[in-house]
Amino acid sequence: MKYNDEEKNIIDAYNSGKMKLTTPSEKELEDIKAAAKNTFRKNKKITLRLYDHDYHGIQKKAFEMGIPYQTLISGLIHQYIEGELIPKKSV
């Protein structure tokens, strides 16, 4: 498995004894559970107008991936916001 620099530093610190694992408190567990629940809660509905060609294309791609087309659209928007989509280079 490949690790990034931050992960390597954590593993090294743990292996050298500089970092110890502890059991989280009940409060910490509740906070973690609440954060996880809120992370995946979609709480906004929008109406979106698309070109017919784009609509059918997104449906086709979603079908090929085995997911609902709304999920694909939501995922693409999220990736764009997080800076994970790489723009095409112009020729």
Rank of each mutant, 00 (worst) to 15 (best):
Y3A: 08
N4D: 13
N4L: 07
N4Q: 04
D5Y: 08
E7P: 00
E7G: 03
K8T: 13
I10A: 08
D12P: 00
D12K: 15
D12W: 12
A13G: 04
N15D: 13
S16N: 04
G17C: 04
K18P: 00
K20C: 09
L21W: 13
L21M: 12
T22G: 04
S25F: 06
S25A: 06
S25D: 05
E28T: 15
D31M: 14
D31I: 11
D31V: 14
I32Y: 11
K33W: 09
A34Y: 08
A35V: 15
A35P: 02
A36G: 10
K37R: 05
N38V: 01
N38K: 07
N38T: 05
T39S: 13
T39L: 15
F40N: 06
F40I: 08
F40G: 04
R41E: 11
K42D: 03
K42F: 06
K42M: 01
K42E: 05
N43G: 11
K45R: 06
I46G: 03
L48Q: 03
R49E: 14
Y51F: 10
Y51G: 08
H53E: 08
D54H: 08
D54I: 10
D54S: 07
D54Q: 05
Y55Q: 00
Y55K: 01
H56R: 05
I58Q: 00
Q59R: 02
F63G: 00
F63D: 09
E64L: 07
M65L: 15
M65Y: 14
M65T: 07
G66A: 12
G66T: 12
I67Y: 03
I67E: 01
P68C: 02
P68T: 05
Y69R: 02
Q70C: 08
Q70H: 11
Q70R: 06
Q70T: 15
L72P: 00
I73S: 02
I73A: 11
S74Y: 07
G75R: 14
G75Y: 06
L76F: 13
L76W: 12
L76R: 04
I77P: 00
H78K: 15
Q79C: 14
Y80D: 04
I81F: 09
E82W: 02
E82K: 11
E82R: 12
E82F: 07
G83L: 02
G83H: 04
G83V: 01
E84N: 13
I86K: 11
I86Q: 07
P87R: 04
P87T: 04
K88Y: 14
K88G: 04
V91W: 11
